[in-house]
């Protein structure tokens, strides 16, 4: 993957759920590891509740030149389970690519909707966020799942960006991230 360019990630969420924030935190973590990375929203006016996308590119070796939206991702992250039925989540997803999905369901539930040709990681992020944050905002929870399933950055690299972004709420967000990192299940890996 690395020889052919950066690893490309597309995050699907709804306006107000923090998709862009999560993309930014992961890029900042990668940059703190001396990698090259970029993160940006799907360009346009922001609308709360509407399906939105955010993008991340990470390259371990060289600066990233492409600035267009990610259309052929290596990884997709789904923050909002309701999007599975209304957005073409796997559009352009590379064969053997990774789906990281927030769901209360099982591997089988997801595989019934999508081809089994993708690597799959699932986590009930909404329940974790409700329990520890007191609200169903899952962006930081899903970062834990993404890191567990992909290893694109070190978990510790996220601590500083989290602190900078969330201040006094950083500790709680760190907790949900760690919990989801532990509880995320990756198909074929136990």
């Amino acid at each position: 993957m690395e020889d052919s360019g950066p690893i490309e990630i597309r995050i699907h969420g709804r306006g107000g759920q923090g998709s862009v924030t999560s993309a930014g935190l992961v890029a900042q973590a990668a940059i703190s590891e001396d990698k090259y990375a970029q993160a940006f929203p799907s360009f346009g006016p922001e609308r709360r509740g509407a399906p939105v996308q955010a993008f991340i590119r990470i390259d371990n070796h060289k600066p990233i030149r492409v600035r267009a939206g990610v259309t052929k991702p290596d990884i997709v992250v789904v923050l909002d389970p309701s999007l599975l039925d209304i957005v073409d989540i796997t559009s352009g997803l590379k064969e053997g690519g990774l789906m990281v999905v927030n769901t209360k369901g099982s591997f089988k539930d997801i595989e019934e909707k999508f081809d089994a040709k993708y690597k799959l990681a699932i986590i009930d992020a909404t329940s974790i966020a409700r329990e520890l944050l007191g609200r169903p905002i899952v962006n930081t929870t899903m970062i834990g799942a993404l890191v567990k399933a992909s290893g694109i950055v070190k978990l510790e690299s996220l601590f500083q960006p989290l602190e900078k972004r969330f201040g006094r709420l950083a500790e709680k967000n760190k907790k949900v991230m760690l919990k989801s990192y532990t509880e995320t299940r990756v198909k074929g890996e136990g």
Partner: peptide, 8 residues
């Protein structure tokens, strides 16, 4: 393409 991108 430049203004809204997080980058190094």
């Amino acid at each position: 393409h430049v203004s809204h991108v997080i980058e190094p």
